[in-house]
Simulated assay, not measured.
Amino acid sequence: MTGSPLPVVVLISGSGSNLQAFIDGRDEGSLPIDIRAVISNKPEAYGLVRAEQAGIPTRVLPHRDFDSREAYDEALRAMIDEVAPELVILAGFMRILSTGFVDHYQGRLINIHPSLLPAFRGLDTHQRALAAGVREHGCSVHFVTPDLDAGPVIVQGPVAVHDNDDPQSLAERVHGQEHRVYPLAVRWLAEGRVEMRGERAYLDGMPLVTAPRLEPGQDPGTL
Rank of each mutant, 00 (worst) to 15 (best):
residue 94 M to W: 07
residue 133 G to D: 10
residue 37 A to Q: 15
residue 19 L to D: 10
residue 168 Q to M: 07
residue 137 H to Q: 06
residue 127 Q to E: 15
residue 84 A to R: 09
residue 98 S to W: 08
residue 141 V to M: 09
residue 170 L to Y: 08
residue 84 A to D: 14
residue 72 Y to E: 07
residue 144 V to S: 06
residue 16 G to A: 05
residue 145 T to G: 05
residue 222 T to H: 00
residue 38 V to Q: 10
residue 164 N to D: 14
residue 139 C to I: 08
residue 40 S to D: 09
residue 120 F to L: 12
residue 6 L to T: 04
residue 12 I to K: 10
residue 217 G to A: 07
residue 172 E to R: 13
residue 15 S to I: 11
residue 64 R to F: 10
residue 106 Q to D: 15
residue 49 V to W: 08
residue 194 V to W: 02
residue 184 L to C: 02
residue 29 G to W: 00
residue 2 T to Y: 02
residue 108 R to Q: 10
residue 159 V to C: 01
residue 179 H to R: 09
residue 194 V to A: 02
residue 95 R to K: 14
residue 171 A to T: 11
residue 64 R to D: 15
residue 13 S to L: 09
residue 60 V to D: 02
residue 133 G to N: 08
residue 214 L to K: 01
residue 6 L to N: 05
residue 136 E to A: 09
residue 58 T to G: 06
residue 149 D to R: 05
residue 6 L to V: 06
residue 223 L to H: 00
residue 122 G to D: 13
residue 117 L to D: 12
residue 127 Q to S: 15
residue 64 R to A: 14
residue 104 H to D: 13
residue 102 V to F: 03
residue 79 M to T: 14
residue 104 H to G: 13
residue 196 M to S: 06
residue 9 V to K: 11
residue 92 G to N: 09
residue 40 S to W: 00
residue 136 E to C: 07
residue 55 G to P: 01
residue 129 A to C: 15
residue 21 A to F: 12
residue 172 E to I: 04
residue 131 A to E: 15
residue 192 G to D: 08
residue 134 V to R: 10
residue 32 P to K: 03
residue 154 I to A: 00
residue 156 Q to Y: 06
residue 191 E to D: 13
residue 193 R to F: 06
residue 117 L to W: 12
residue 184 L to N: 03
residue 52 E to A: 14
residue 168 Q to P: 00
residue 185 A to I: 07
